[in-house]
Amino acid sequence: MKKIITICLLTAGFYACNSGTNDQAKTEAPTADSKVTAKADPTDTPEFHKGMDLVNNNDCKTCHKIDERLIGPAFRDIANKYPNNAATLDTLAHKIINGGQGNWGSIPMAAHPNLSVEDAAAMAKYVLLLKNN
Rank of each mutant, 00 (worst) to 15 (best):
T37K: 12
T88H: 00
V117D: 15
S106C: 00
A87S: 09
T62S: 09
P108M: 10
Y15D: 01
P113A: 14
W104F: 12
V36C: 04
A87V: 05
K39W: 04
D23T: 13
G72Q: 09
N114T: 12
A120Y: 05
G102M: 04
D41N: 14
T43D: 05
K95D: 05
H49M: 05
D41C: 02
N85W: 04
I5H: 06
I4Y: 10
D59R: 13
K81M: 04
A40Q: 05
K39E: 10
A120N: 09
N98A: 12
M123I: 15
L70M: 06
V117S: 07
K81Q: 08
D67F: 13
I66M: 10
F14G: 13
H112K: 12
D23Q: 13
P83H: 02
S106W: 06
L89T: 01
K39G: 02
T88S: 09
P108G: 07
D90Q: 12
T27I: 15
N98D: 15
V36T: 13
D41E: 10
P42T: 07
L115D: 05
I7L: 15
G51F: 01
P30V: 10
T43S: 11
M109F: 07
V55S: 08
Q24V: 10
N56W: 05
D59C: 09
I97P: 11
S106R: 07
A120K: 07
I107P: 00
S19V: 14
P108S: 12
Y126I: 04
H112T: 06
I71T: 13
N18M: 08
S19C: 10
K81N: 11
W104D: 01
N114L: 11
A86D: 14
N80L: 01
H49N: 05
S34Y: 03
T27E: 14
E28D: 08
T62R: 06
N133T: 13
P42C: 06
S34N: 04
E28G: 03
A29L: 14
V55H: 01
I78L: 08
D41P: 05
K125G: 03
F75H: 04
I71C: 02
F75P: 03
K125D: 13
G20L: 09
T27Y: 14
M1A: 15
D77F: 02
A38V: 15
S106G: 12
H64K: 12
D77V: 02
Q24S: 04
E47I: 08
L89M: 04
M52W: 06
P113E: 11
A12P: 00
L9G: 09
C60T: 10
A29N: 08
L54T: 01
E47Y: 00
G100N: 06
L10D: 04
G105M: 13
Y82E: 01
K95E: 09
C60D: 09
T91W: 01
Y82D: 01
A32R: 10
P46F: 04
Y15P: 00
M1W: 07
L9M: 14
N132S: 12
I66K: 07
I78R: 01
A29D: 02
A122P: 00
C63R: 05
F75Q: 02
I4H: 11
T43M: 11
L10S: 14
G20C: 07
N58M: 04
T43W: 03
K125V: 02
G100I: 11
K26S: 03
K2I: 09
L115H: 09
P113T: 08
N98W: 08
N114H: 13
S34R: 11
I4K: 06
Y15V: 05
G99F: 08
N85V: 03
